[in-house]
């Protein structure tokens, strides 16, 4: 779940006829018929969408029992597990895409998770909330307190999001790790693409970034 989102129980949109904006952007990056592992797949909205629309061979890992249950009940191949302990068993290149949506900031060791993802997947797709987003910056500047907004609903002492970064931070880490950003979409609050990964303006206006990654 994103700290910049409402506490959405489902990744499906309220109207029920589609999926969340960031998931749609992720889905756009996935080639039809590929092998996909969705890490932190929630209730399986993205996996179900990819299976239906793109004919992918989809698998998932989800921490919450309720999520796993909702996935398996609809026939999706999902295991109950933790991204930080249960990814390491997969062989290198086991998947065409390993997807991590809005969860990297909640990992104890985001760098290790990124490393594992780019090892077991030929490509990784990661979406991260941007802590450099202007609304967040403004709140910290004006109030002097950790930002808590409509879309960022946690107090500092209760948040599961322990490793926030900005778009810029993420780009720097990827470079350090020798991970190539093959494609990147920075989107604003309305879900519109606002710019490129290296643009300072995107780091200000973008609410989240979606990155297609490949290890060099």
């Amino acid at each position: 779940m994103s700290p910049l989102d409402d506490n959405q129980p489902s990744a499906r949109t309220a109207s029920g006829n589609g999926i969340r904006t960031d998931l749609k952007l992720i889905a756009e990056m996935v080639e039809p018929g590929s092998r996909v592992l969705d890490v932190g797949c929630g209730d399986g909205a993205l996996l179900a969408f990819l299976s239906r629309q793109k004919g992918v061979d989809g698998r998932g890992i989800e921490l919450s029992m309720d999520g796993v249950h909702q996935c398996v009940v609809q026939g999706l191949s999902v295991i109950q597990g933790d991204a930080e302990t249960d990814l390491k068993d997969y062989p290198p290149g086991a998947f065409d895409y390993v997807i991590l949506s809005q969860t990297l900031q909640a990992m104890r060791e985001p760098r290790t998770v990124l490393e594992t993802m780019t090892r077991i997947g030929r490509r990784a797709i990661v979406s991260v909330p941007n802590f450099g987003y202007w609304r967040i910056r403004t709140q910290l500047l004006l109030t002097g307190r950790m930002p808590v907004t409509e879309k960022l609903g946690y107090q500092w002492w209760e948040t599961p999001n322990i490793h926030f970064c900005t778009i810029k931070d993420f780009v720097v880490l990827a470079e350090e790790m020798g991970i190539r950003i093959e494609r990147c979409m920075i989107v604003n609050r309305a879900g519109r693409v606002t710019g490129h990964a290296h643009s300072g303006l995107a780091n200000l206006l973008g609410e989240q970034g979606v990155f297609l990654l490949r290890r060099d």
């Binding site: 029992m65 191949s77 999902v78 295991i79």
Partner: peptide, 10 residues
């Protein structure tokens, strides 16, 4: 997982 099998687990 180590053989990338198709598996669900609850």
């Amino acid at each position: 997982n180590a053989v990338a099998a198709n598996v669900s687990f609850v």
